[in-house]
Each structure stands twice: as structure tokens, then as C-alpha cells.
């Protein structure tokens, strides 16, 4: 099977999976006691039965389940995720407004964790008893043991309260004026702490994985061949060994992506980063079901896309992976 055919198949499966996620989400929320009408009525400070019925009518909540489901799924197909009564905005525009911030946080921290983790892993594997190796072990223990909210709060205490180097939260400072470059610097300034916090767990994971994977690869016969060819250590490590060691790393990074998305919710809350995580928390507290479902849908979408990208990357790295 050709590469494009495989890709088409993967995208097809991805779409089916998304529809499954939609149906499951919708069903679960419908089964849960209470609905939007109850919440609106609650916010109004209580309402009588006729008013609640009126609201139900307006939101189509009195229709049979399968009609509601169909209306929802076909709406999503037109990128219409419903209307948030809490924000008084269509859910799609609400999410699209917050999505970039989350993607920025998630991808920047993942790239940082993967690049730095791989580098540390390679250096550690070069000298398995050296100082970098020790650092990687320490980092892993710390990264695995420390919950995100705790390390986030520690960072805030250290670099906002004691040494006020970074802003306490948010994504931009409205008082900062200047061209796009100044704005970018301001953004990076705000991004730094949340990015480090979210990256720390995965940095631990990836550096340990890269170390183990590199150690295994460095014992392989083809590494001896590369040395016998006269390649300098640098080329042996970063070309011949690393390309072979990347497979497990890419696989795990792909699998971890959904965990990173949920990690982002916590980090965004700690640093008041105006992304999907903050939105998710607020809409859960407000029982804003259309928004919650929209966020779940978008997260699944991102995770599925990342998984397809992981597959493509693996294929590009290792020619032995059969297409099909």
C-alpha cells in the first residue's frame, strides 16, 4: 500500500474516531442529571416550571434524544458547536479564540522537552557514569515525583515573588506598547514559566527514554561500522545513533500528547494562561455543557491529528516500518 493510501486510511479512521467521541460525549452529558435549562434557571435565582419549559423549547432540549444527537453531530460537521449561554457567544468562536494560546503552550513545552530531553539523553548515554547521566537520573526522579501545580507554584514563588523576573500570570501585558517584536518578547516573557512547568514532567520522561534508547543503540554493530568508517564521534552519535534512537521517543511523545493536553489545563489554571484549560475549568464550574463538549471535541481532534503526525514521522525515520 502506498504512503498516501495509508495516510488516507489513517485520516478516515481518525474521522470515525472523532464521530465516536462526539456521540459518547453527547450521550454521557445527556445521561447526567440536570441540563442547561436547570443551570440557566439556577443562575436566574430560580424559575418556575413554565419558564424552564420555555428555555428547554428554545434549546431544543424537549426533542427526542436521537434528534438532539443528530442536530448536534450535523452541527459539528458545519463547525457549529452550539451556543454558550454562559458566555453568550457561539462555542466555536469561543474555542477558536482560546485555542492558539493552548497550542502555543502545549507545543512550545513539548518541543522544549523533546529537544532538551534528547540532548540530555545523548550526553548521558555518551558517559553512562558521568555527571550528565546523574543529572538525568535526578531530573527524572524530580519530574516524576513533583506534581505540575506544585512545581508551578514553586516557580511562581521563586521567580515572581522572591526574584521578580517574570510576570505572575496571563499571556500579555496590556501596558506594554511597541511593534511586533516588543509584543513578541512580552509574549515569550509570559510564556516562559508555564512552558517550563509543563515541560518539566516530560523533560524527565524524554531524557530518561533517550538515554536508555541511545545506550541500546550505541551497542549495535552498525555503530562499530560507523566508527570503522572513520566518522568522528559527533557524527556517530548525532547521525547514526540518534536517528535509530528517535523511534521510541517519537512513539512515546505521540502517546503522551493527550496527557500533555490535560497537564495544560492545570498549568493554565496556575498561571492564569488564557487558553482552553482555563476556559474548560470555568465552563465546568458554570455547567456550561455546550462549551465543555466543544472543548472535549477540540482536544480529541488535536490528539488525533498529533497521532497521525506521529505515524508519519515514524515512517520517515525508519524505513523498516511497513506501510499498510
Amino acid at each position: 500500500m502506498s504512503f498516501t493510501q495509508t495516510l488516507a486510511k489513517r485520516i478516515g479512521y481518525g474521522l470515525l474516531l472523532l464521530i465516536g467521541v462526539l456521540i459518547l460525549n453527547f450521550t454521557l452529558i445527556s445521561i447526567a442529571p440536570g441540563d442547561v435549562a436547570d443551570s440557566i434557571a439556577g443562575d436566574m435565582g430560580g424559575a418556575d416550571v413554565t419558564v424552564i419549559e420555555e428555555i428547554r423549547e428554545r434549546y431544543g432540549l424537549n426533542q427526542p434524544f436521537h434528534i438532539q444527537l443528530w442536530r448536534y453531530v450535523s452541527g459539528v460537521a458545519r463547525l457549529d458547536l452550539g451556543f454558550s449561554y454562559f458566555y453568550n457567544t457561539p462555542v466555536t468562536s469561543l474555542i477558536l479564540e482560546k485555542l492558539p494560546a493552548t497550542l502555543l503552550l502545549v507545543f512550545s513545552s513539548q518541543i522544549l522537552a523533546i529537544v532538551l530531553g534528547t540532548l540530555l539523553g545523548v550526553l548521558a548515554a555518551k558517559k553512562p557514569n558521568g555527571i550528565v547521566s546523574l543529572l538525568v537520573t535526578f531530573l527524572s526522579l524530580f519530574g516524576f515525583a513533583a506534581p505540575v501545580f506544585w512545581s508551578g507554584i514553586l516557580l511562581i514563588i521563586a521567580f515572581v515573588s522572591i526574584f521578580p523576573l517574570f510576570p505572575v500570570g496571563g499571556m500579555t501585558d496590556v501596558t506594554v506598547e511597541g511593534g511586533w517584536f516588543i509584543q513578541l518578547l512580552d509574549l515569550l516573557h509570559h510564556l516562559f514559566l508555564p512552558m517550563i512547568t509543563l515541560a518539566s514532567i516530560y523533560l524527565a520522561l524524554y531524557s530518561r527514554l533517550a538515554r536508555a534508547s541511545m545506550l541500546e543503540v550505541l551497542g549495535a554493530d552498525y555503530i562499530r561500522t560507523a566508527r570503522a568508517k572513520g566518522l568522528p564521534q559527533r557524527a556517530v552519535l548525532y547521525k547514526h545513533a540518534l536517528k535509530n534512537a528517535l523511534g521510541p521517543l517519537v512513539t512515546v511523545a505521540g502517546l503522551q500528547f493527550s496527557a500533555v493536553m490535560s497537564g495544560a489545563v492545570v498549568v493554565e489554571t496556575v498561571f492564569s494562561w488564557p487558553g482552553l484549560g482555563t476556559l474548560a475549568l470555568q465552563s465546568i464550574l458554570a455547567r456550561d455543557t455546550p462549551t465543555i463538549m466543544g472543548i472535549l471535541f477540540f482536544s480529541s481532534f488535536v490528539v488525533i491529528v498529533v497521532n497521525i503526525l506521529t505515524d508519519i514521522t515514524l515512517r520517515l525515520i525508519d524505513p523498516r516500518i511497513k506501510t499498510g
Binding site: 549495535a220 554493530d221 562499530r224 561500522t225 566508527r227 570503522a228 535509530n244 524505513p319
Partner: peptide, 19 residues
């Protein structure tokens, strides 16, 4: 290495880099 002295090994199945 590789320029004045070339070397081949016992294990042809694993001595070439698979990627």
C-alpha cells in the same frame, strides 16, 4: 580508519545502519 584501513565484520545482518 575507512581511508587507509577498511574493515568488514562478521555480522552482515546487523553491521549496516537500518535507517
Amino acid at each position: 580508519r575507512g581511508s587507509e584501513i577498511g574493515m568488514i565484520f562478521q555480522e552482515p545482518m546487523t553491521s549496516l545502519n537500518p535507517v
